[in-house]
Design a protein around this nucleic acid. Structure first.
Lengths: 200, 200
DNA sequence: TTGCATATCTGCATCCGGTGCAAATATGCA
DNA sequence: TGCATATTTGCACCGGATGCAGATATGCAA
C-alpha cells in the first residue's frame, strides 16, 4: 500500500488520507492514458486497472468518465472570480475584467494545461461539456462583478460584460491552441480594445 | 448518384419521399414522447416503436438520441446569419446585430419552440450539447459580420461582437423561459444598451 | 414486363458507460 | 477486543451506439 504523506490535512484520519490519495491516483493515471491514447479509445476498465481499483470504485469517485477530465479544471471559475475580486473596486468594469484576466493568465501557460485543453478541443463530448462549464464561469463572474460594484445580482451590465469576457476567454484559448508561440494574452488585448472601439 | 430531375416535382423519386417522410415521422414521434415523458426516461426503443421503424434504422437517420432534438434547431445558425446579412451594410456593427436579432425574434415566440427550449434546459446532456451548438452560431455570425462589413474573416471586432451577441441570445432565452409573460426582446434591449454604456 | 444493381431496412452480436444492490473488507472508536 | 460504519468490490442489468451481413425495396435499363 502506498503511503502518501500529506502536508497539512494529514491528521484527518487514515480514511480521508487514503481517499484523497486514491482520488489523485485515479485522476493522474486517467489523464496519463487519455493524453497518451485519446479520451474515447481509453476505457474505464483500463483506467481502473492502471489506478489499482475496481471500475465500480472509480465511478464512485468520479461520477462519469468526463468528470475525471473536468475535475482538473474544477476551480477555474473560482480563480476568475477571485482575480476580479482582487481588482480595485473603482476600476471601470471592462478594465476590471480585462486586468483580472491578465493577472490570471500565468496559470494557464503550463504545458500540462495546454495538453488538457488540446484533449478537450479534440474530443466532441468533452468540448460540449466544457462549453457547459463556461456557463458557470459566466454566471459566477457576473455575480462577482455585481458584488464588487455594489450592484444587484442580476444587473444586466454585469451579465453582458461577463458574457463578452467568457467569449474572449474561450477564443483566447483557441488562439493559444492554434498558435502555441503567441502568448495567450495577444488575442485578449486586441479583443478588449475592439470591444471598446465597437461599442463606443 | 445525383439525380438532375426537374425541380417542379419536389418529390423526385419514391425513395427520397419515403426517406423524408420517415425522417419527419421519427422526429415528430420522438419529440412528442420526449416532451410528454422527458428525454432521459424515453428510450430509443419506444421512439422507434412509435415511429414504426427498427431501433437500428432510427440510429441510421439520427446519429444519436440528442441529434433528434437538435435537428429541430438545426438551421438556427443560418437564420441568424441571414438576418444579419439582410441589414444595411452601413449600419454600425452593434446596431446591425441588435436589429437583426429583433427582426428574427418572431420565429422564437412559438409555444413549440419554447417547449423544446424548456426540455433542453431541463436535461443536462442536452444543455451541454446546446451550448456546443452555439459555438457554431458564434463562428458563423462572426464570419457574416465580417463579410457584411468587408473585413477579413478573422477580424477581432466581429468575433468579439459575435461572442457578446450569442451570450445575449442565450441569456434572453433563459429570461424568456423563466418568465413567459415578458417578451423575449426585453432582456436583449437592455443588454445591448448596457453594452454600449459600459464600453463607451 | 423482367432482371439486375444498388439503396435501404433489419436483426444480431458486441462494446462501453453508468446504476443499484448486497456481500466483503477496512477503518474508527469505545 | 469488538462493534458500528465507511469503503471497496463483484454482479446483474440497462440503454445508447457501432459493425456486419442478410433480407427487402427501389431505380433503371433491356
Amino acid at each position: 500500500m502506498q503511503e502518501v504523506q500529506n502536508e497539512k490535512h494529514a491528521d484527518a484520519g487514515l480514511r480521508q488520507r487514503k481517499r484523497a490519495a486514491t482520488h489523485a491516483r485515479i485522476q493522474a493515471e486517467a489523464m496519463r492514458l487519455f493524453l497518451a491514447n485519446g479520451f474515447e479509445p481509453t476505457t474505464l476498465d483500463e483506467v481502473a486497472a492502471a489506478a489499482g481499483v475496481s471500475r465500480r470504485t472509480l465511478l464512485n469517485y468520479f461520477g462519469s468518465k468526463e468528470e475525471i477530465v473536468f475535475s482538473t479544471k474544477a476551480d477555474f471559475p473560482r480563480w476568475v472570480a477571485d482575480a476580479v475580486a482582487a481588482r480595485p473596486a473603482d476600476e471601470p468594469m471592462l478594465d476590471m475584467v480585462e486586468n483580472a484576466l491578465f493577472d490570471l493568465a500565468d496559470r494557464h501557460r503550463s504545458q500540462e494545461a495546454r495538453a488538457v485543453a488540446a484533449l478537450i478541443a479534440a474530443t466532441p463530448s468533452l468540448r460540449a461539456g466544457d462549453q457547459a462549464k463556461y456557463e458557470a464561469v459566466e454566471r459566477l463572474l457576473a455575480l462577482t462583478l455585481a458584488a464588487r460594484k455594489g450592484l444587484p445580482d442580476d444587473d444586466v451590465a454585469c451579465r453582458v460584460v461577463a458574457g463578452a469576457t467568457v467569449s474572449i476567454i474561450k477564443q483566447s484559448m483557441d488562439a493559444w491552441l492554434a498558435n502555441p508561440d503567441l502568448p495567450p494574452e495577444t488575442f485578449g488585448r486586441k479583443a478588449f480594445a475592439a470591444l471598446r472601439r465597437v461599442a463606443g
